[in-house]
Simulated scan of single mutants.
Amino acid sequence: MRHLATFVAAVVLGPATWVLVALGQGRSLTVFDTAPNADLPSAGDPLAAFVFIAVAGMLLGVVGTLRLSPLGATLIGLGYLGSAVAAVFAPGRVINLLDHTLRIGGYDANLATPVRTGSAALLGSLLVVAVVSAKRWRQWPEAPADETPKPEDTPIPLGDLQRDTELVGAAGLTAQDRPQWETSWQSRR
């Protein structure tokens, strides 16, 4: 079940993150290309670029670092790395394939931007390294069978009855004292 969940997450988050990176880097390139000609960029331009890239990083961080199935991180990482490697051997084809501009909320995102800037290779490598991390494959520690508390050693919660010095010892009631406690409490009602 966890493999299916991370597969669905990869199918949704991989392309969404790609678009966010394209939006953020495209916006950032536009802002800093025009910065020498302007005294001060408008306040929303660098902030929008930062938000897009930060959200993309958070989305990939969820897939890459949490103790989920590594399937999602593997799929996204290999997809991003594959696009970067393909661009090394056939840059014209990859750019032609990805060179589409989306307009989202007044911002333009050229889908080839992550390949052009090298972000696809960087992010893909990070996700693949997260998959091969030894800690990711370890199981959560389980309590050894001999250290589990026995029912007679478990204190009974007392709430307001802690004032009753006749029934409460220094460590509280144990399961052995239950019949006495129940009898005493019922007789007071």
Rank of each mutant, 00 (worst) to 15 (best):
H3E: 15
L4I: 06
L4A: 14
A5W: 10
F7Q: 02
V11R: 05
L13I: 03
P15C: 12
A16E: 08
A16W: 01
W18A: 00
L23C: 04
L23K: 11
G24D: 01
G24L: 02
G26K: 00
S28D: 15
L29N: 04
T30N: 09
T30S: 14
D33V: 12
T34P: 01
N37M: 09
A38W: 07
L40A: 04
G44V: 02
G44H: 08
D45Q: 09
D45M: 05
P46D: 14
P46R: 03
L47F: 13
L47C: 07
F50P: 00
M58E: 09
L59T: 00
L59S: 03
L59G: 13
V63Y: 04
L71P: 00
L71R: 07
G72P: 01
A73H: 06
I76P: 03
G77R: 02
L81S: 13
L81F: 08
L81W: 08
G82T: 09
A84W: 05
V85H: 01
A86C: 07
V88F: 03
F89I: 04
F89E: 01
F89C: 03
A90E: 15
A90T: 15
P91A: 02
G92H: 12
H100G: 14
T101M: 06
R103T: 15
G106N: 10
G106E: 12
Y107S: 01
A109K: 15
A109S: 10
N110G: 07
V115H: 01
R116Y: 05
T117A: 02
G118H: 14
G118Q: 03
G118M: 07
A121N: 08
A121C: 06
A121D: 05
L122P: 02
L122E: 09
L123D: 13
S125E: 02
L127F: 04
V128M: 08
V128E: 04
V129W: 06
A130Y: 06
V132I: 12
A134S: 14
K135G: 08
W137D: 00
W140Y: 15
P141R: 07
A143L: 14
A143D: 10
A145H: 11
T148M: 11
P155C: 05
I156H: 13
P157E: 13
L158V: 08
L161Y: 13
Q162M: 06
E166Q: 11
E166P: 01
A170K: 06
L173T: 04
T174A: 07
Q176V: 11
D177K: 12
R178K: 15
W181L: 11
W181T: 11
S184P: 01
S187F: 10
